[in-house]
Design a protein around this nucleic acid. Sequence first.
DNA 1: AAAGATTGAAAATTCAATCTTC
DNA 2: GAAGATTGAATTTTCAATCTTT
Lengths: 145, 145
Amino acid sequence: MRMTSALDINESVWVGLVRAHQAVLASIETSLKEANFPPLSWYDVLLELERAGADGTQAFVLGEKLLLPQYGLCRLLERIEKAGYLKRTRCDKDGRAQVLLITKAGVEIRQQIWEVYSAAIQRSIGQKLSLTDAETLAKILVQLK
Amino acid sequence: MRMTSALDINESVWVGLVRAHQAVLASIETSLKEANFPPLSWYDVLLELERAGADGTQAFVLGEKLLLPQYGLCRLLERIEKAGYLKRTRCDKDGRAQVLLITKAGVEIRQQIWEVYSAAIQRSIGQKLSLTDAETLAKILVQLK
DNA sequence: AAAGATTGAAAATTCAATCTTC
DNA sequence: GAAGATTGAATTTTCAATCTTT
């Protein structure tokens, strides 16, 4: 009789990671879409800008944090700005760079999105895992970064 | 002193899931791109077709397995067929349906992709987790489906 | 030249139909 | 009418430049 090899277990982890990620993500994106809210990527941007406060954030710093390619960030910011949730301004210190500021409307939508978003997280994670399994999971996942 | 609430832990799980997934995925996609191989979605299709054997697979069954929307599957199959890795044929039993067959070239590329793919999995998972952590992780992730 | 940002064109994804067969 | 598949148009993503400032 054959034992499960170390090779197989890593494949199982990957398959599990893909399935779990896509299940939770689908649940979240469906909730957002039903509420007529923008996609999750907008939330990530708005949260970072809100955390940065009145000084704003440099665009390229945001890009590094969110692991977005230059053009990806640029086009994402274009759309969010067009929707009125952020402002892009030239940086005083460095003419090449941009400083990003969240608008009042941006703060409001971020809060509204969070209500739907966090409820979806509770539904798709909180209701499926025991507290101890959730804690164990969070601890192990950190090692994969 | 404040305890971590059950609410917070679920957020941590979600953040961990997103980060871990994207780290491993990035490693895999980078390896595939370096080797000039098609994206991962092609692999999933080819693997299913290879498993199905000489009888092939009905397209809509594949779509359900891979959780793809009708149009998404249709356009994916278009591209893979155009690359010569599968054939789409009308189903005898049901004129609405399609039977998919992997080609010889498809079998070959699937095998080549797997060599790169599995190596990337070992690097981004196997080298970061102990065997027991990997086993625990796989077990807990299944519950999130 | 390097860093930060932008853009045109191509490819992929999505939405909302539509088409064909049952 | 419903199931399976396709398609036109719109949006988003990607690649490969290009532009501006340091």
